[in-house]
């Protein structure tokens, strides 16, 4: 999952339970990906964070710093 030009790309994804999503910030500004039960913390340019999704569900998330940046992960 790339974070670029103040967007999560792709914003919505579907993954299998047990998968890991890697968030990578390509912007100059620090970003987070924060949802219920997970938080990448502040990612500076070039930094990445792996988040595991062990159980099924829908997880909406946003950047805590730039709240217009949103996305959704559907875990099947």
């Amino acid at each position: 999952m790339e974070i670029q030009q103040f967007e999560f790309v792709p914003a919505d994804i579907e993954i299998a339970a047990g998968s890991t999503v890697v968030f990578v910030n390509l912007d100059l500004a620090p970003h987070t990906a924060t949802g219920e039960g997970f938080d990448t913390g502040a990612l500076r340019k070039g930094e990445r964070k792996e988040i595991a999704f062990p159980t099924a569900g829908e997880f909406a998330y946003l950047c805590k710093f730039h709240r217009h940046m949103t996305g959704r992960i559907v875990v099947r």
């Binding site: 030009q5 103040f6 912007d27 100059l28 500004a29 730039h66 217009h68």
Partner: peptide, 15 residues
């Protein structure tokens, strides 16, 4: 770099 900076500043303008 200026292009990336402008992305940031435009987000600030909206905010």
């Amino acid at each position: 770099l200026l292009g990336s900076a402008l992305d940031t500043f435009k987000a600030h303008e909206t905010h």
